[in-house]
């Protein structure tokens, strides 16, 4: 019988993040069909309070690692904490959300506990009693379902792939797991977190809309000229008015890296797809994006998709977008901005 460990860290404010609650949802759901035992383990600042928040999740045990040294997201201490928690729980299946903090350490932890690990997991299900995991390969271009006989098996669930656990808070009986901290684990110190200034913030993970600016914005238009400053104004106005998050295709981002006439506010962090992010938003509007499907696989997690493109036969919009407007994005987006500003 498998022991499922829900493993999470607290956020800077001591709560459990949405992604962690999604992982908990997946862990709780898996328990019954495999007839497993659920254990919850939390590390980081105020782990006890976080355990209370999920007290009614059905976990048999609540394990915590607490203390100042574990409040900072740092490989050495996080890996030690996770290792200790997995060992203390006797876990055979570990389910965690793929946050930057868990993603940094859990493969290493798998190695320490002689386990195996899968990341970019989108579903965890019991198929005829066997745990079957679906995950991405080749940067969201191939999806595979697999099983492993090896244990412990650590699974990092992509954010947004499962409904978040919902339940009443209570008082959890927690067991504190002690983790020895030799100096060798304290060679790294987290100093700060750098956030881009609000006026330069173009990536908004919680936005309702992802606006994808394709390379067409910087190319020669009908009159034989490029209109980069105009494109810049239109896009920034739109982001301001709509509070959308900005995504770019690879070529546009690369152009900016090469000091070509490109959009100055578009950096590598904006890149979606192949070598960029695969953000999740309810809606996506793609503009001037012709022919960059391998790079805009970031579309995959956008629920409603529309595109503005001059080519009605564009194979990348056809079959991939819900609506394709065959029109000049410069013209349309200028009008969109006028309408949004008037609201």
């Amino acid at each position: 019988m498998d022991t499922i460990l829900f493993l999470a860290h607290t956020e800077a404010d001591g709560t459990l993040g949405k992604a962690a609650l999604e992982a908990l949802g997946a862990a709780v759901e898996l328990k019954q069909p495999i007839n497993g035992t659920l254990v919850a383990a939390i590390f980081g600042a105020q782990a006890k309070a976080a355990a209370d928040f999920i007290a009614s999740c059905g976990a048999q045990r609540f394990l915590t690692v607490e203390g100042d040294e574990f409040s900072q997201p740092r490989y050495a201490t996080d890996a030690a904490a996770c290792e200790a928690l997995i060992r203390a729980a006797g876990a055979t299946i570990v389910i965690a959300a793929a946050t930057s903090r868990t993603s940094r350490v859990l493969a290493g932890v798998a190695h320490r506990v002689q386990g195996c690990v899968d990341t970019h997991v989108t579903s965890i299900a019991a198929v005829s009693g066997t745990i079957t995991v679906t995950r991405w390969f080749y940067r969201q271009r191939i999806e595979g379902s697999l099983t492993r006989s090896h244990r412990p098996w650590i699974l990092l669930l992509d954010p947004g792939a499962h409904a978040a656990w919902q339940g009443a808070a209570g008082s959890a009986t927690t067991e504190t797991v002690e983790v020895p901290l030799p100096d060798a684990l304290r060679r790294t110190t987290v100093r700060s977190v750098v956030t881009p200034p609000a006026d330069q913030q173009t990536i908004r993970p919680d936005a309702n809309l992802l606006f994808v600016a394709g390379a067409g914005w910087t190319k020669k238009q009908k009159d034989g000229q490029t209109h980069v400053p105009e494109a810049e104004t239109i896009i920034l106005d739109f982001l301001r008015n709509s509070k959308a998050s900005l995504g770019g295709s690879k070529s546009l981002v690369d152009l900016s890296g090469e000091n070509q006439a490109a959009l100055p506010f578009m950096g590598h962090l904006n890149q979606v797809g192949q070598t960029g992010a695969s953000p999740r938003h309810p809606k996506g509007l793609s503009t001037c994006c012709h022919g960059e499907e391998p790079h805009t696989v970031g579309w995959r997690f956008i629920a409603e998709r529309r595109a503005i493109n001059l080519d009605p036969n564009c194979g990348w919009a056809r079959g991939k977008a819900d609506v394709l407007y065959v029109a000049d994005a410069f013209e349309v987006m200028t009008k969109v901005n006028e309408l949004l500003a008037a609201k």
Partner: peptide, 13 residues
């Protein structure tokens, strides 16, 4: 979309 595609698409596909 698989064999007969626009000229623009054939460049990339």
């Amino acid at each position: 979309g698989t064999l007969l595609v626009s000229h623009q698409d054939v460049l990339l596909m």
